[in-house]
Amino acid sequence: MTRGPGRALPVVAGAAALLVLWQVVVAVGGIAPRLLPSPARVAQQAWAHREVLAAHAGATLTVTLVGFSVSVAVAGVLAVTLDRLPRLRAGVVPLLVASQTVPVLVVAPLLVLWFGFGLAPKVLVVTLVTFFPVALGLVEGFAAAGPGASALLATMGASRWQEFAYVRLPAAMPRFFTALRIGVTYAVVGAVVAEYAGAVHGLGTYMTMQRAAFRTDLVLAAVGVCAALTLTLYALTCLAERVVVPWARPRQVRHG
């Protein structure tokens, strides 16, 4: 994987070109700001409302992180259990897939109805949305170790715990981090959807309010904050991956 300005340049240039085009279309076409505000106006209004936006972003971030942590913890326990009990695994993995077919937009209001406006329903939504990729990533990761390495550990006289710690857990890490990266992007969206369904704080709530007030610029500003939040969490996950799974990025190959 190559990194640095060489790779980022096309992305930045593309985004800048889009923004310029947007600005020009709005200015030349004389489009009303409540229909489509110019990017400059969105940025200016976002800055003017930065304190309110930051407060709501903080609430969304809390829901995201708590929900995602719960998701990873539950997925971890389940995946380790399923790894130990292969027969159970065959029965439970389809259930995990089925959990993904639950339409979150429909379930979220129900959860608010059952659990109120507190943290619980929102955390549940985030967990529901992110649980599947993380659990499946771990289940498949543990299995990725292969029978050979397990046999080797067995001949060494290793206990099941040693085999897990020395082989299955590290073998699962590359897939686990792929799952984490997917999961964390779902997590922010999940949190916003949950807030949309009913909450006092958070970017989802803020968007609902601003849309009702026809402040399209502030809705878009909140969308921008959402995107920034997601990208930041994604980047942090990538960073953690580089630290925890250094072997997945081979250094220069030597021969001898």
């Binding site: 050979g148 390495a149 001949t155 060494m156 006289g157 020395y166 082989v167």
Partner: peptide
């Protein structure tokens, strides 16, 4: 197990 050191054709390096 645990009484002999075994090596497979596949090197099985971690």
């Amino acid at each position: 197990t645990g009484h002999a050191a075994w090596m497979a054709q596949d090197d099985l390096l971690l």
